[in-house]
Simulated assay, not measured.
Amino acid sequence: MDLKKLTLMPYGLEVQLPAGSPLTDLERGTSQRVIPFGCQQGACGACVIEVLDGFDALGEMDPEEADFLEDLGQTGGNYRLACQCRLMSAATVRVADAL
């Protein structure tokens, strides 16, 4: 199995997920709830993350996600909705609520 590392800041928590896994798999992969997944469909904004390293490692952002992030005021940075991301290679993210 091809595992990829996701580092979650500011906790310094590192998890390994199979390549291509949705980040919502974190709820099953760790006992800590570090990303507050709400609806898991990109409609609530609870899971906004800032990508510190590996933006391209999380798959492409579709226009609906970009529009929703703009509505939330999360523009001009490397923000994503964690529920819309798939881990393709190593990445480091910060939970936006922890900023």
Rank of each mutant, 00 (worst) to 15 (best):
D25T: 01
Y79K: 05
Q74C: 14
Q41S: 12
M1V: 15
A90F: 03
G29S: 15
G42P: 03
P22F: 02
G73L: 06
I49R: 02
L6R: 07
D25S: 01
R28C: 07
P63S: 11
A98C: 02
C47F: 00
S21P: 02
C39M: 01
T75E: 14
A46M: 11
R80A: 01
A43Y: 03
L17E: 03
Q40V: 10
C85V: 12
Q16S: 14
P10C: 09
C83S: 10
D67Y: 05
R28S: 05
V34H: 04
T24S: 08
F68H: 07
G42I: 03
C39L: 07
S89E: 15
V51H: 12
P36K: 09
V48A: 06
G38L: 03
P22Q: 12
V34Y: 07
L26Y: 11
D71S: 15
A90C: 04
P22H: 06
L58C: 10
I49E: 08
R94I: 13
A43E: 15
D67A: 14
L8T: 09
G29R: 11
M61K: 14
L13P: 04
V93P: 00
G38T: 13
A91R: 07
D2G: 13
L6C: 11
A82F: 10
E60A: 12
Y11T: 05
G54S: 10
G20Q: 04
T24G: 01
A90P: 04
L6N: 09
L69K: 00
C83N: 09
P63W: 00
M61S: 11
S31K: 14
Q16T: 04
C44M: 09
R94E: 06
D67L: 05
Q74M: 15
